[in-house]
């Protein structure tokens, strides 16, 4: 199980990073989203994975999962949304001002980064 989870996190990271390195804003945003899935999962499993109960007192046999990473990841998900929204807006603004969706803001598709 642990191996499977580790591989999945690695895979999400790799996919996210590859898209992050693309030249256009939209794939980069998708890459960021994938990467944040990976990061959230990574942080979450720092509390280990297992057959324990959700950390709600009084439910189950007292074997609870670690609630702390969950609390951290919960806010991370929400903030992640805010950041994605911010990047999206930046991309739209860049498109409006520069008439290009290249990350380098270059109207010429073969800009300095190409």
């Amino acid at each position: 199980m642990e191996l499977l989870v580790a591989i999945m996190i690695g895979l999400l990271t790799a996919c996210g990073i590859y898209l992050l390195l693309r030249a256009r804003t939209f794939p980069v945003i998708m890459g960021l989203t994938l990467l944040s899935y990976a990061v959230n999962l990574f942080l979450f499993v720092m509390g280990r994975i297992g057959e324990s109960q959700p950390a709600v007192i009084g439910v189950g046999d007292g074997q609870y999962t670690d609630p702390l990473p969950q609390a951290l990841v919960l806010t991370a998900i929400v903030i992640g949304f805010a950041m994605t929204a911010f990047v999206v807006t930046l991309a739209l603004r860049a498109r409006g001002e520069l008439h290009s969706d290249h990350v380098d803001g270059d109207a010429d598709p073969r800009g300095p980064g190409a």
Binding site: A6, I9, Y64, L68
Partner: peptide, 30 residues
């Protein structure tokens, strides 16, 4: 290659942590 390298390192880190015993401060919160 960069993406694969990054993915591999993150997977390795996750694997390394997951196969080690948990030391947590959550007992207090529970």
């Amino acid at each position: 290659l960069l993406a694969a390298g990054a993915g591999l390192s993150v997977a390795a880190l996750a694997w390394g942590v997951l196969t080690r015993p948990l030391e947590t401060i959550s007992g207090y919160f529970l």
